[in-house]
Design a protein around this nucleic acid. Structure first.
Lengths: 150, 150
DNA sequence: AATAATTATGTAACTTAATGCATAATTATT
DNA sequence: AATAATTATGCATTAAGTTACATAATTATT
């Protein structure tokens, strides 16, 4: 059992080629040395937030909204170093070189009360829609980060 | 129990202020609403790769080498989309805007056979020290990513 | 609508994780 | 070296996670 590796391979495989079914995916995984049955893949898909969609060239898999959100949460919870605020804005510190990416993801979350973000190399300023909302913006961000993976 | 949140808070707290002991850390966590005892924190420190170091202003905690490696592994395994290679180099695809950061981390790993990396926005070229080493470089990277967290 | 293909899920067996408590072991201080 | 402070760990317990197998449910095809 190596779930980590298996799920990394799943992500890779579906991003590389159009896979039409979970059985087919199982075969691809087997090529890469991971033997697993279809039931497990069904659960992986669920857990990773991957959906089957129909294209004109047949079915394939891709991350759905829930999967994207989960990936964002996991990612920024590592990239974010700490969160502070003063009377007028929220300040987020990130790992070096990640502020830009994290800020974009925060934007994409459309958290209530967020007016805009501005990112340098490892620092993000979050301007609230009103200075009265500073606290609730910080809380919203923290809540998002700590949300249980469903 | 919310280990995710607790460990995020630990990271944040130790990056914010000098904490002198695990009991003190437990108190800080309590302020943030997480009640936990010292034994659990000892295990968290172990798991997160955090060490106590003595400075002239007293003891404090920081990530050690193992902790850094673990963070890097977790981070790039999310940021990396897929890995391929041809006869002459390894190509890594990342999430948008992460190639630069991932490439730097790959450099820092000093994997055997890696001559240099060059990153755009979501693509990294890894030049091997010899074209004969392309395969082993790809494998080394995959192995690092999939390594079990000890 | 029947059939085939695909996916989801209940069950069961088993493994691993999480964490408090008490206490041992280690490290720092006097 | 004694004492105090700090950290690590054995034990016990409870909760979650993992996955195969069989089969039900759903979705696509003819």
């Amino acid at each position: 059992m190596n779930k980590q590796r298996r799920q990394f391979l799943i992500k890779e495989i579906i991003s590389d080629k159009a896979i039409g079914s979970q059985d087919e995916l199982a075969k691809e995984l087997k090529k890469a040395g991971e033997i697993v049955n279809q039931a497990t893949l069904s659960r992986d898909m669920q857990e990773m937030g991957i959906s089957r969609i129909n294209t004109m060239h047949g079915a394939r898999y891709q991350f759905n909204l829930e999967g994207e959100e989960k990936r964002i949460r996991t990612l920024i919870s590592i990239e974010i170093q700490n969160i502070h605020s003063n009377e007028t804005m929220v300040v987020v510190r990130t790992l070096p070189g990640r502020a830009q990416g994290v800020a974009e993801m925060i934007d994409s979350l459309k958290l209530p009360g967020v007016l805009a973000t501005l990112a340098g190399d490892n620092t993000i300023f979050i301007a609230p829609s009103s200075v009265k909302k500073v606290q609730s913006v910080e809380l919203a961000l923290r809540t998002f980060i700590a949300k249980e993976d469903s």
